[in-house]
Amino acid sequence: MADGVKPRVRVPKEASAGEAIQIKTLISHPMESGQRKDDDGNTIPRSIINRFTVEFEGENVIDVMLEPAISTNPYFEFEATVPTSGTFVFTWYDDDGDVYTEEKAITVA
């Protein structure tokens, strides 16, 4: 696992039905591109988050493929409409096979 990887998510606790809510996510990750060299001239191997998905009660909200040009600590901000109360599941996939997940519940009044 890459060092210091920690997912963070901000979802409002409550919303009204059909309201577009703002979701912010950030994962601390070096996003090593694989194109840099260390002091001895050796290539530093690529190590990035290559995919990010969000699901709401089993339904896909977004599914993003990330490329090496995306900088350190990838940040995503997007809007989603919530029909009912439920749970968002956020998943990040690391090049080294690790998967990081985070869940946030939201109540629709």
């Binding site: 210091g4 920690k6 963070r8 912010k24 950030l26 940040y75």
Partner: peptide, 12 residues
Amino acid sequence: DFDNPGMLGVEV
């Protein structure tokens, strides 16, 4: 603070 990447350093 959520958007500010400097806050990652504060967490450390």
